[in-house]
Design a protein around this nucleic acid. Structure first.
Length: 282
DNA sequence: CGGCAGGCGGTTA
DNA sequence: TAACCGCCTGCC
């Protein structure tokens, strides 16, 4: 089966997730629901190799994508028709789409996105990745060992993120080695809230979660495609392409809701990717 | 080079 | 509206 509208590099490196990395051979390795997944994508064909606790010795590649992985990659959604719909609706977006045509909105674990985006505040992608990896290694469970394609990193261990219960029982001193800065207390506090009462409908009730992070969690962790997170880059691009004042967050939000409605989230990704990759061009 | 501001996918009080 | 942590980048 050929998969359209998918480019791993764009999907895994567009800021929606932080646990995937590109291997020397161009394949991608990440952690999905306590599985280590390595995938190759060539000529529209996806093959993957899955390692977990119940795996036997030799990991093998297969083109049979398990249901949970297909769901994670949102392969059931037709991004092609979303793109043509948006292109008809708005000429500005039509120009932006080609820069991020291979982006899919992953269906990630809710707790994982909460942790990730609390860490993401006032932070950049390489450091966010480092923080999350360190946190998993410090407090998460080891999900297995993967030597990498062609044994490029023999014996490398992979860790799941710690559960809310586990994190709730930790102290800021415990998290010291991770260098989360002031974010460590947000994380612990939020973990307590989630472990105790679950995830609230209004995500800003969580400590360290403001409007921007809440929208990211809503979009990436709940797959609410209407969510439209407004960060500095979106402010920039909305100013440049639509003439909004960079402080007019309210205006941007209303505009997105009105214009893009249920697809605000993917539009945000196209805009974001456009301004980050094409900003050097005139 | 080496040291030092300034910035960063924001939130809080 | 200013601190907040820590790391990275750019400038001198």
């Amino acid at each position: 089966m050929k998969i359209k509208d998918f480019i791993p590099g764009q999907t895994f490196d567009c800021g929606q997730c932080f646990r995937w990395s590109e291997e020397p051979d161009g394949s991608w390795t990440g952690i999905v629901m306590n599985n280590i997944v390595n995938m190759r994508f060539e000529d529209g064909k996806l093959t993957c190799c899955i390692i977990n606790k119940s795996s036997s010795a030799e990991p093998e590649y297969t083109d049979e994508i398990p249901e949970w992985l297909s769901n994670y990659l949102d392969l059931g959604t037709d991004y092609g028709s979303i793109k043509s719909l948006l292109s008809q609706k708005d000429k500005v977006i039509e120009k932006c789409i080609p820069y991020g045509e291979g982006i899919r909105i992953l269906r990630q674990d809710l707790w994982e996105t909460i942790v990730s985006f609390i860490i993401s505040q006032n932070n950049n992608i390489p450091r966010i990745k480092k923080c999350i990896d360190s946190l998993a290694e410090l407090a998460g469970e080891c999900v297995g060992t993967y030597d990498g394609p062609d044994g490029s990193h023999p014996g490398k261990k992979y860790y799941a993120l710690p559960t809310a219960e586990k994190l709730a029982g930790m102290s800021t001193e415990d998290l010291g080695p991770i260098h989360l800065g002031y974010r460590d207390k947000y994380l612990i506090e939020t973990a307590g809230q989630v472990a105790g009462a679950g995830v609230p409908d209004d995500l800003t009730e969580l400590q360290g979660v403001g409007p921007k992070v809440a929208n990211c969690i809503d979009l990436f962790g709940r797959h609410n495609m209407a969510a439209f997170p407004i960060d500095v880059w979106v402010k920039r691009v909305m100013n440049r392409l639509y003439g909004f004042d960079e402080n007019d967050v309210r205006g941007m939000a209303d505009f997105a809701k009105e214009k893009f409605g249920e697809y605000g989230g993917i539009v945000q990704q196209y805009l974001f990717h456009y301004v980050r990759t094409a900003s050097s061009e005139k």
